[in-house]
Design a protein around this nucleic acid. Structure first.
Lengths: 376, 376
DNA sequence: TTGTACGCGTTATCAA
DNA sequence: TTGATAACGCGTACAA
């Protein structure tokens, strides 16, 4: 900058003003811009951050194993949605995966060091140290999912996991399955716990804790393990609610290995409406989750806080999968009915169908992939 | 820091010394550490960066569409490998996806602003502006894949795509297929171009340009499109080399829709040995690519430059898939033979088998998934 | 409209 | 071993 000022024959203050907007004469501005181009000047962000106390960056915190970032298209889609909003506002999104005590330590430094102005936090559990840190720092943040009770005052955005899980379980039960189990993943996260709750609610008296296999993550491999466990406990199982599509895909693999036909012998439903749901054979019925929009809203809530606007700290529930109304951008004037509507896939653009069922929107490849009467 | 110094009754210089290591008396150190805890002091990284001219962060640049980061387990695995090495050295990896002119602009600022000390660059093409920027900045960097000719002096790490593609194509041809096509993705990247070259070399006189469908990305959807195009051009096609496993999975879906059986009617091979390869039915034969290690080596090369060590700028070719030797950590004393060996999957840990075939290591789920004589 | 000068929070140099 | 003090590169209040 010194060089630029010298080349343009002005003071550094004037250079700074043309960079940031201030009263500058046209001649001075022209001279400075020429000098900038000539010298190849780029502002030093560290110095700017130091004085402005801002970084123009927002962290995207994921409290899951690194591998899940690749496995789980749901997290990926949330990330994409957040990134779209952030880059649009000229913020740089910084991915921060916390998977160990060492990660926690390094990222604690990162967050407190002024590297980010705010954060979107995914998969936080109560008592996660990072959650506490964000609160202590007063870092503008938004949770994806229910916040731990501690952190009131931090907004969140999510879906009605309980209602959606209940709805798809009821649908599964409606196909005449008698022994219905669940592969419940990540019950230490609110999403996992809520989906289990919804499953339990749907089954009521018929709920059998023995038919719930708990696994750690929304992971293909965990789906295989969970399904094997269920088969061992109850060979007569004929229906399974998998906590995510990836889990469902793993479960189907385990069933194939066990020689069970899907959906003839065992019906499976998933959750997320991710690409997994279509790439299984047969394609999965699943709950549509507006993952990209969740990410976008979460990022937007961070940006609003950054702009000093007021924000509802109570939380935002996106309507698509759970409120009984179709997603806003596709909503017709009528209340949701059983009429089919075209539905774009999460990220492939392949046509699917969705239907309001109870309080949930369920996405499926055929009228209903599980109906025994329709499968050969 | 001022507060800490005051609370401990020392100068800021002494505080800085206990933070960064220097001669400090035990009593002073104790007093300062107590003060740090009491005040809840965290160093300001922006200020530190300003004076040290370092950020302890390394960028992971991907010059692909955002969605590919989710779709392509290969990029993901490279990222994981890089991140493991970087976090181990207490560097923060920052993900930078460049997918538009606006991204380029924002990330240019980010890179020139001192936000990162170095970069791992994936999928760069010649003449990518970012490539030029990195060279101009003198930013310590490593390319994954061949570097564009321009940027000599920047090291790279890759595999022998030509040789591997040739080997697996020869294997495919060896199963008796007569009309063999290729779905060539990303031919504007070196990996895509090289795989096409290898395919062409393997077929020699039998190479028919009409049987090559070029698609933009290593994408499931592109695989479907490519396969449809091939089927239209040559209904009698009976073998396909897909440029990646995701492309192969898409191609299989298209074949399924067209009523062709795999591998009975059409044999397919892929590339990457990613989870895609196992989750298709039947599972794919594919070229094993040590993606995690590629990422790790690339990150390591950046770190070495940062440490001022000399680095071979010519490039590193990892031996696993292409050099004719088995991967270092699993290599026996003997030269590779046709004997089977157990092989852990890229990230699932499921057992697979690999075999040296010509210059490439090929990973497959059965003796050879394509052998017609072995499939019903 | 412009230049001057101070301060942002650290590290590094030097003399003590 | 410690304490002053000068950078680091920039934004901005203030004076001109």
């Amino acid at each position: 900058m010194h060089d630029v000022a010298a080349a343009a024959g002005v003071s550094r203050g004037t250079v700074s003003r043309v960079l940031n907007g201030g009263y500058v004469s046209a001649t001075a501005r022209a001279a400075i811009e020429a000098a900038i181009a000539q010298v190849g000047y780029v502002p030093n962000t560290a110095a700017r951050n130091l004085v402005t106390q801002r970084s123009q960056a927002v962290g995207f915190l994921v409290l899951e194993p690194h591998s899940l970032l690749l496995e789980d298209p749901n997290i990926g889609a949330i990330m994409l949605g957040a990134n779209a909003v952030l880059s649009d506002a000229d913020y740089q999104m910084v991915n921060l995966v916390i998977d160990s005590a060492r990660d926690t330590e390094r990222i604690t430094k990162y967050l407190s060091g002024g590297f980010v102005d705010g954060a979107v936090i995914v998969s936080a559990r109560a008592h996660d140290p990072i959650t506490q840190l964000v609160a202590d720092l007063g870092l503008p943040a938004t949770f994806v999912g229910h916040p731990p009770d501690l952190e009131q005052g931090i907004p969140f955005v999510g879906i009605d996991n309980v209602g959606s899980a209940r709805a798809i379980t009821e649908r599964l039960a409606g196909t005449g399955r008698r022994r219905i189990g669940m592969i419940a993943a990540a019950v230490d996260r609110d999403s996992g716990a809520d989906r289990l709750t919804g499953f339990r609610q749907a089954l009521g008296d018929r709920f059998d804790p023995d038919l719930v296999a708990e696994v750690a993550f929304y992971h293909y491999a965990d789906g295989m393990d969970g399904m094997r466990a269920l088969l061992q406990r109850e060979p007569g199982i004929d229906g399974v609610f998998a906590a995510s599509d990836a889990v469902a895909a793993g479960a189907m693999q385990a069933l194939r290995e066990a020689g069970r036909a899907v959906p003839a012998d065992v019906g499976i439903v998933g959750f997320d409406d991710s690409p997994w749901a279509q790439r299984t054979a047969p394609a999965l019925s699943t709950v549509h989750q507006p993952a990209k929009e969740i990410g976008a809203r979460a990022a937007d809530l961070v940006l609003r806080q950054l702009a000093g606007k007021s924000v509802e700290t109570a939380g935002v529930f996106l309507p698509t999968p759970s409120s009984g109304a179709p997603p806003p951008d596709r909503a017709g004037p009528d209340p949701p009915s059983l009429a089919r509507r075209p539905w774009p896939d999460v990220d492939q653009g392949l046509p699917r169908r969705s239907r309001a069922y109870g309080r949930a929107w369920i996405s499926f490849p055929r009228p209903f992939a599980l109906d025994r009467r329709r499968s050969p």
